[in-house]
Simulated scan of single mutants.
Amino acid sequence: MRNLFRPAAVDEPLDRADTSLVVVAESGDEAEASSAVLATSAWRVDEEVVLRHVLRLPAQRVPDAVATAALSGYRRLDSGPDVGPEVADANMADPTVTVTLARVQMLDAVHLSQERSRMASLGSRHGGLVVGWQVLQRPVGDR
C-alpha cells in the first residue's frame, strides 16, 4: 500500500553514475554546433540531464584537472565505456588516460556550448584534449 503513495522515480534526482541512463545526444566533432546536435537528437528540453565530457589527459595531470572540474560541479566517473588505461597517444608527448567528467544540470544549446568551451579550456590547460561529449537522460518509459 505504501508504494501507491510514493513519489514517482522521476522525482528522484539524477545520479551521474546511473547506468540506466541513455545517451540522447552526443558528438566527437569539436566544430559541430551544440544547437545542431540537440535539434536532431532525442533530448527532452524540460528534463534534467547528465552532461558527460570525455578528455584525453596526460596521466600526471589528471588529479589537477579533476580538482579544477570539481569546482564547477563535475565529478570523474570511475567506470564506463569511455574510461581506459594509459596509452601512448601520437598527438601527445606523455602517456595519456581517458577521463570522463560528468554533472547533472538543466540544459539548452547555450549552456552546452559554454560547458564544451569550459572543457576545451580545461583540457588545453592540462596538456590534453576533449574527445567528445554526451547528454544522458532517463529512458522515455521512466519519465
Rank of each mutant, 00 (worst) to 15 (best):
Arg2Thr: 14
Arg2Phe: 15
Arg2Ala: 14
Asn3Leu: 08
Leu4His: 09
Arg6Lys: 14
Pro7Asn: 06
Ala8Pro: 13
Val10Arg: 12
Pro13His: 04
Pro13Thr: 11
Pro13Trp: 02
Asp15Gln: 09
Ala17Tyr: 12
Ala17Arg: 15
Ala17Val: 12
Asp18Leu: 04
Asp18Ala: 13
Asp18Phe: 09
Ser20Asn: 10
Leu21Trp: 13
Leu21Ile: 12
Val23Cys: 11
Ala25Gly: 15
Ala25Asn: 10
Ala25Cys: 08
Ala25Met: 03
Ala25Gln: 12
Glu26Thr: 06
Glu26Arg: 13
Gly28Arg: 04
Glu32Phe: 01
Ser34Tyr: 01
Ser34Lys: 01
Val37Leu: 02
Leu38His: 03
Ala39Val: 11
Thr40Leu: 03
Ala42Met: 02
Trp43Ile: 00
Trp43Ser: 01
Arg44Glu: 11
Val45Arg: 15
Asp46Met: 00
Val49Tyr: 01
Val49Gly: 06
Val49Asn: 02
Arg52Ile: 04
Val54Tyr: 04
Val54Thr: 09
Leu55Trp: 00
Arg56Cys: 00
Leu57Glu: 03
Pro58Thr: 02
Arg61Asp: 07
Val62Glu: 05
Tyr74Ala: 00
Tyr74Glu: 04
Tyr74Ser: 00
Arg75Gly: 12
Leu77Pro: 11
Ser79Gly: 12
Ser79Met: 05
Ser79Trp: 02
Gly80Glu: 07
Gly80Cys: 08
Val83Ala: 04
Pro85Glu: 06
Glu86Tyr: 05
Val87Asn: 08
Val87Ala: 13
Ala88Asn: 10
Ala88Gly: 10
Ala88Phe: 10
Ala90Trp: 15
Ala90Gln: 12
Ala90Thr: 15
Asn91Ser: 14
Met92Gly: 14
Met92His: 15
Met92Asn: 09
Ala93Tyr: 14
Thr96Asp: 08
Thr98Lys: 09
Leu101Thr: 09
Leu101Gln: 06
Ala102Glu: 07
Ala102Val: 13
Arg103Leu: 06
Val104Phe: 10
Gln105Pro: 15
Met106Tyr: 13
Met106Pro: 07
Met106Cys: 12
Leu107Ile: 02
His111Cys: 07
His111Thr: 14
His111Arg: 13
Leu112Thr: 12
Gln114Tyr: 09
Arg116Leu: 05
Arg116Gln: 10
Ser117His: 15
Ser117Lys: 11
Ala120Trp: 10
Ala120Asn: 13
Leu122Ile: 09
Ser124Val: 11
Arg125Glu: 10
Arg125Ile: 06
Gly127Ala: 08
Gly128Asn: 10
Gly128His: 07
Val131His: 01
Trp133Met: 00
Gln134Trp: 01
Gln134His: 10
Val135Met: 03
Val135Asp: 04
Val135Ala: 02
Leu136Met: 10
Leu136Gln: 06
Gln137Met: 02
Pro139Thr: 02
Pro139Phe: 00
Asp142Val: 08
Asp142Glu: 06
Asp142Asn: 06
Arg143Ala: 06
